[in-house]
Nucleic acid binder design. Structure first.
Lengths: 160, 160
DNA sequence: CAATTCCCGATCAATTCAGTCGACTTTATA
DNA sequence: TATAAAGTCGACTGAATTGATCGGGAATTG
């Protein structure tokens, strides 16, 4: 699983969808406009989300996408893994990172980190995000979420 | 901060160095051979590690690199942030991800995830890895570290 | 002086990301 | 039935990043 803008887009789009599906299917065109995401790109992402059975599609006029199941049953980890192809190539265990036939010296470190990340992402579901979002827009409260280091925005990419 | 093979290479190389620096400076050529990492690539990484004052260099014959301070005072997070340039471009808060002037709907989610990752990586220092590695090579014990999902190796990339 | 080692910049192929485009299928409804 | 709305699919693109390579230095030891 990867987490990039791709994964963020997917989660954001799914949340938009979750917040609006009471009025029937939600069109990608709408999501694209509200969330400022390219429509064509969204189509690609939702193709994957549909194949992973996280959303269901309705064709034709009045159509769009709905969640395939209850928002409580869709975790962020599922969304992210759905939109990203697994990458076996860069796996720790190949000749490049791991030494000989043994796991490389830092294998356990990455495994442990990956597990923590996955567990966290899997502990948050769409319903949680919906509640959080509704509270925010209702009360206009800025949630203080102790940033890692103020002003520093960086990327993390990790081997699972 | 990013974490890719780049970061893993850096941590692996630093660990190799930490385990061998008792005999004086460790050459990059040695690290490259033992860890199967391209020498030129290592040079690039150690240039950054030196500029971040995580290692110190000694030129000339018999030269090489040493840790710039005690292994207990060097965390994995420091190593990883050292070798990766900060990326302000893809920051959540720009026009692309965040809506209008408000933080995007999933901002808190990514912040929280990033914080957890950083905290974990910052809680592990080089000395921890040295002890772990020595135990492993001594007892030849395979540490069971509950992989996320068996056989699945994937990438995670995350906004900090 | 010669060998060793770090230092630095330029360049490169492969991959991925994010987006675009064009053509197609399904379906509601006028 | 004709039209338009909407999803479906595949190919393609430019930019960025990764990991690597190469050549030429500079410092230091003996």
């Amino acid at each position: 699983m990867r987490l990039t803008t791709k994964g963020r887009f997917a989660v954001t789009a799914m949340l938009d969808l979750a917040l609006r599906q009471d009025n029937g299917p939600v069109t990608l065109a709408g999501v694209a406009e509200r969330q400022r995401i390219s429509l064509s790109y969204l189509e690609q992402l939702f193709g994957k989300l549909r194949r992973q059975e996280l959303v269901a599609s309705v064709r034709g006029p009045g159509g769009g996408y709905c969640l395939a199941r209850d928002a409580r049953k869709i975790t962020v980890a599922q969304i992210i893994t759905a939109v990203d192809e697994p990458l076996d190539a860069t796996q720790c265990g190949g000749k490049e990172n791991c030494l000989d036939e043994h796991r490389c010296m830092t294998h356990d470190l990455w495994s442990s980190l990956s597990r923590r990340m996955y567990d966290y992402l899997d502990s948050v579901n769409l319903h949680d995000l919906m509640v959080q979002q509704r509270d925010k827009t209702t009360h206009r409260v800025v949630v203080h979420d102790h940033a890692v280091r103020p002003g520093v925005s960086e990327m993390v990419r990790v081997q699972l």
